[in-house]
Design a protein around this nucleic acid. Structure first.
Lengths: 259, 259
DNA sequence: TATCATTTTTTAAAATTTAAAAAATAATTT
DNA sequence: AAATTATTTTTTAAATTTTAAAAAATGATA
């Protein structure tokens, strides 16, 4: 939503187009230079940082809604989104990080009626995604003052029950990581063994062997040597590796246990 | 719901107590004598067998709702229920296994108005549970003509999107099985190695070694020998084993990888 | 007491994982 | 041009786990 008029229509008549009480929130994890990050948005009328989220349209399913919402609120296209848990604690809409109704009035001229559709209790379906921080262009819309990455180790307190969502999303993402490869979307096309080892350390939150972990990936056939090397000064130049497309796709389909 | 009057009130005024458009469905897996089964209910006004399910009350959270619904619709108390996925495809309420409104009128004297709250599109949060078939007493209520176990290999076609739900529930249950012990609630207090091996075969859908799988469980410390034996005629009497409570609880908390 | 079907333990081979040492490398210094 | 250096990569051997099969144990029955 870009214009004041669009927002006014959404606030007052949104229930024609959207399903009342059904939201989606997305925990988008990013990887860059050895750090795990999370994409958050700051909405002008909500007092805390939150996961990007929104209402589901009557004509779309949950997966489509998650794709649309992340695209519109963060500018990221084609995310691999994974549903992980639904949150429906009564009162979750009125907990930490409430709507600032005066601010809303100031910005849009609208005051929500007592029976406005947005006041209904919501249930929120949580999705998570993993993406390369470099390739994503966070974008704020009219009501969002900011949209940016935070290191996972330095998150602010989030609004509503989004702290719980992040905790659960991270846990689900790591179970996923244990069974399926994800590096192809997050690492450069060519990478050194050190880079992929660091990548898995950051994503899993565990420390891995610098020698045995990479050689396991090689033994599985998941990564293969290229002819190029990285030049890093007065040291042995590490060889660049890349994913073996065939093995990678098979692992995506059938699973494969990593450390 | 036991009486006609309760049902009439639910149909016409249920939206005071229940959240509109938010349901829960539960795939309850049962184990008995080497067979994996699923508990289904046949509602008089729905044309196909379905998973036990119902609407969420405004005052309860999703976990509590799942516990209440399974208790009321099947008579089973204290199930370990696990949320696995939420279903929200538009039109899912009108697909296979629709409401038979004439039948409803015949049974209760009620006809649903055009704008009745039950006509609103629903999203359904799926839960699964695992239980011992022997210890459960399926119970049908006023609108349910029947509630009984079906072998997983011989399920009827289910109403709405419940076929999808069962498929996904089974997949999630098996991932769970791979990481956490569950036998304590489903096997008798004492069991032979052959019994626990069969149990894991049935639950996982895989065949396991008759010698190495049990000895792995012993090596993990998960099961220990008792002093008693089962007498089975002209054969060596197998020793009864039982779970080691301490190791079992630790595995429940922290996970443990089985075959 | 011998036989039998079945459970349980033992064994040895195979495979995998782990930890550490050794070798290779390429820029820099001598 | 040779030696040095820091780092990557390979090799090695030991330890552990898994697998498959054989052997032993058992307890009722003939």
């Amino acid at each position: 939503m870009e214009t004041k008029q669009e927002i006014k229509h959404f606030l007052e008549k949104g229930y024609f187009e959207y399903r009342q009480g059904l939201c989606i929130d997305c925990a988008i994890f990013g990887y860059h230079a050895g750090e795990l990050q999370l994409l958050l948005v700051k909405n002008k009328i909500i007092t805390r940082w939150c996961l990007p989220g929104g209402y589901v349209k009557k004509t779309e399913n949950l997966d489509d809604a998650a794709a649309r919402i992340t695209r519109d609120r963060t500018g990221i296209e084609g995310l691999y989104l994974q549903q992980f848990k639904t949150f429906g604690e009564p009162g979750r809409n009125k907990s930490y990080g409430y709507f600032d109704e005066d601010k809303l009035h100031e910005l849009t001229g609208v005051r929500l009626a007592e029976n406005n559709w947005l006041r209904a209790e919501t249930v929120s379906v949580g999705f998570y995604a993993i993406t390369d921080v470099v390739n994503t262009i966070p974008k704020a819309d009219f009501l969002s003052s900011e949209c940016r990455w935070f290191p996972i180790a330095a998150l602010p307190n989030l609004g509503f029950d989004h702290d719980d969502m992040v905790r659960d999303a991270l846990q689900h993402m790591r179970v996923h990581l244990y069974h399926y490869p994800i590096g192809k979307n997050l690492l450069p096309k060519r990478f050194t063994l050190k880079e992929i080892k660091l990548f898995y350390e950051v994503m899993s939150g565990k420390t891995l062997s610098a020698t045995n972990f990479p050689s396991k990936l090689i033994a599985l056939g998941l990564i293969v040597k290229t002819r190029e090397k990285l030049h890093i000064g007065a040291h042995r130049s590490p060889t660049y590796y890349q994913f073996n497309e065939k093995v990678y796709q098979k692992a995506l389909r059938e699973g494969l246990v990593f450390v």
